[in-house]
Write a protein that binds this DNA or RNA. Structure first.
Lengths: 337, 337
DNA sequence: GTGAAAGCGCTAACAA
DNA sequence: TTGTTAGCGCTTTCAC
């Protein structure tokens, strides 16, 4: 393929008949350069196909203008939109975003953080990381760190951005109660970070409505559609049968839908169903699932703004932003039969 | 936050009472270093929390050991697995992967490529890029480029990895014919790169089976579930009504499912349905869609291997790897009524 | 307005 | 086995 040696600023200077420093000035749009020189440099740049070497520049400037983003698992649809938010805001603020994935494994996440740090990112955003708190703490000693989506990580020096999961499930319960439901059950998740607040939000909302006695939780590792199927199957065996079910997430809700189908029950006629995350899945017309939505784009914006502020002024107590979820009502919820 | 100045190799050398070069040697595990020095350096490294500066290293080594990956759109579930494949192989071969997203916009993709090039990635993998061919061509002048998933880009110097879309739809048709279907229709996509080969594969397979006269294509911009709904609705108006339908992708297939539902028809009893991509959606039990699967992990492996080989020996004609898709049979296909 | 020179943190000859 | 030195490509004083 014979890749020619990449031209350097030196080559440009030579071709334009000026000094390296002049080229550097032109490249960064300095004001005090004669038009003649400016044109000569511009010409040389295009002739040579010169592209500045960001590596060299970073070294001398002592900054990379780059924020590292640890994406624990690319398959989670939650991330795409958060990353979009990060990108948008990064572009806005003059940063570049470096994505690193951890494949959902704690070790891989550690390695990725290490790599990002060696590359001298100026800040680190971690999306739903599964790694140990000490890794986060350690990283935060050299660079501002913002954690998105894990409420359980509260460290000094580490800002967090999350959405209020308890509020989210409460919204769903209130919606169902408003429709007239009283027998509202919950299909909970096992050990994932969001499981507890979502479940607690459900229980609290039920109690607030005087329905403490109707609380029914089917708990297992119900974050997949298979899990949702199982969880729903268990709930259907109970009496009185719930008239509405709130699942830990959309996937579980769709699984629950399958169980209802198999039992010959109709959604929402016989049982109303609510998911969580307002993923892609929920919006599909054939499913059209009522779901709780996290403001993902805004979470991305906020996270990047937070690192940016830390990079600039560094000090101050850790900020923990908690955003309000929103209920998106679709076709799977209706008044009880 | 008071981030202390990051320690450099100089600080480590001083603390360990040795020279910079000795530290450098120890860090890279050189053999000819006395145990005493080695220990002293190791101690200093942990004391200081030293982390090598990859920026400086890259500059002097003239290589970054980094491959850039342009992900045109993070929301497309196709990517996650391909990227997993890339990552796996990269780790294997000693590369780091830098992800850049283009948000599905041609301009943003161009910017991202530019940024990646300035960062001096040693190779570039582009996943389903939508950008103009000249950008790819231009990039390939400075660095090996591998394009994944766009059959229409055939440039010298640019390797491609894709899967045989025509073969994929043919597989689906053969499956349906094997079940006894004759009236098999296709819901096609509009201007996306994969639209033509998928449609052609369908038509060719129909003709091979002597069913050329039964070819029915509903064509519009049918890549969303709404699109699939529309496409199906049109097909249902025709006589004789198709007993099986092959959609451009899973999302469209699910949309089609909705249209069948609304028309009071059952899947697969009245109409069999096949999707494409074998996405997450297809596997959901409640949908359980028969779908054509691209070997995504392997595509990632191959793409990274290809850049790696180019980085090492650079020359040779462009390679165009085409992988075989596989049909995953689930619950939406059955013999005609 | 423009150029010369120093130096960012590191590696790689080459000397010792 | 270890240290000295030069230099990667760039920005940035500081002279001129």
């Amino acid at each position: 393929m014979n890749l020619a040696r990449r031209p350097t600023i030196h080559d440009v200077a030579e071709r334009a008949g000026v000094s390296k420093s002049l080229v550097s000035l032109v490249l960064r749009g300095a004001p005090n350069v004669s038009d003649r020189r400016r044109a000569a440099v511009a010409q040389a740049v295009t002739d040579l196909g010169y592209r500045p070497n960001a590596v060299a520049r970073s070294l001398v400037e002592q900054r990379t203008r780059t924020v590292g983003v640890l994406v624990s698992n690319l398959h989670n649809p939650f991330f795409a939109e958060v990353v979009d938010g990060l990108q948008e805001q990064a572009t806005e603020l003059g940063y570049r975003v470096l994505l690193g994935s951890g494949n959902g494994l704690s070790v891989r996440e550690e390695e990725t953080v290490e790599a990002l740090l060696e590359l001298r990112v100026e800040g680190l955003v971690m999306l739903n990381p599964v790694l140990d708190a000490w890794v986060v703490d350690d990283a935060s000693r050299s660079v501002p760190v913002v954690v998105v989506g894990r409420h359980d990580l509260r460290l000094l020096r580490v800002d967090t951005v999350s959405s209020d999961d308890a509020r989210g499930t409460a919204l769903a319960v209130e919606h169902l109660i408003g429709l007239g439901h009283r027998h509202i059950a919950h299909i909970a998740a096992g050990r994932v970070a969001a499981a507890d607040p979502r479940r607690q939000g459900y229980e609290a909302a039920m109690r607030r409505a005087g329905l403490g006695a109707q609380i029914r939780v089917s708990s297992g590792d119900y974050t997949t559609d298979e899990g949702g199927y199982e969880g729903m199957t268990k709930l259907l065996a109970e009496r009185p049968r719930p008239t509405a079910v709130l699942a830990h997430n959309d996937l579980a809700a769709v699984g629950a839908m399958g169980a209802l189908d198999d039992a010959g029950l109709r959604v929402p006629d016989d049982v109303s169903l609510v998911g969580y995350d307002n993923s892609y899945l929920a919006g599909v017309r054939h499913l059209s699932l009522t779901s709780v939505s996290q403001p993902r784009l805004e979470m991305g914006h906020l996270a990047l703004t937070a690192v940016h502020e830390r990079i600039d002024n560094s000090d101050g107590p850790a900020r923990n932003d908690v955003l309000e979820p929103v209920l998106v009502v679709r076709a799977t919820t209706a008044p009880p039969h």
